[in-house]
Computed example of a mutant assay.
Amino acid sequence: MADIYDENRTLEEDTQHGRFLTFTLEDEVYGIEIKYVTEIIGIQSITKVPEVPHYVKGIINLRGKIIPVIDVRLKFGKEPMEYDDRTCIVVIDINEVSVGLIVDNVDEVLTIDDQDIAAPPASKTGFENRYIKGIGKAGEKVQLLLDCEKLLQSDEMEMIESLQ
């Protein structure tokens, strides 16, 4: 029985391998591995929480589950933007912790082959590229592929877990 489960799990992982949900922030296109995405919802009422970093906008109640919400623009040091009807919350699951990522708008799901993913450019400080897992090339477009596991540092994950 365990072999069947393992085989099904491998099949599921294989169908998700190389698939990325792409979204935009300003005029940059980012991608996250589809295996982390649980759902995409429109912007909704967010309850503010005191004493959290400025990029943590608060929490939402999603069908009875409390989800902390992060504005990715602010996390990446970009200017804040008024939310509109294109603004989305991408709910991801990192190590069984759900987090909502506020993005300008969701584009599409792309399949990017491993050979079309380049390593991020080297940085002298290592700081600028810590969230970037690779650079994907699909057609004429380039996507900055985020590393969901590094998007939140361990102290941030602890803070987010405490909000749930």
Rank of each mutant, 00 (worst) to 15 (best):
D3N: 13
D3R: 10
Y5N: 10
N8W: 06
T10D: 09
E12P: 01
D14V: 15
T15W: 11
G18N: 08
G18E: 07
R19T: 02
L21D: 00
T22Y: 09
F23P: 01
E26R: 12
D27N: 15
V29I: 15
G31Q: 10
G31I: 09
I32T: 08
K35D: 15
V37D: 14
I40D: 09
I40S: 11
G42P: 02
Q44L: 03
T47A: 12
K48C: 05
V52D: 08
V52A: 13
P53L: 11
Y55C: 09
K57C: 09
R63K: 12
G64Y: 09
I67P: 06
P68K: 03
I70M: 12
I70N: 06
D71M: 00
L74Q: 05
K78G: 07
K78Q: 14
E82Y: 05
T87I: 06
D93E: 15
I94F: 06
N95P: 03
G100H: 03
D104K: 07
D104I: 09
V106L: 04
T111M: 10
I112N: 09
Q115V: 11
D116E: 13
D116A: 11
A118R: 06
P120N: 07
P121Q: 08
S123K: 04
K124S: 07
F127N: 03
E128Q: 11
I132D: 01
G139K: 00
G139F: 02
V142Y: 10
L144W: 06
L145P: 12
L146Q: 03
C148G: 02
E149S: 08
Q153T: 00
S154F: 11
M159A: 03
E161Y: 01
L163Q: 05
Q164P: 00
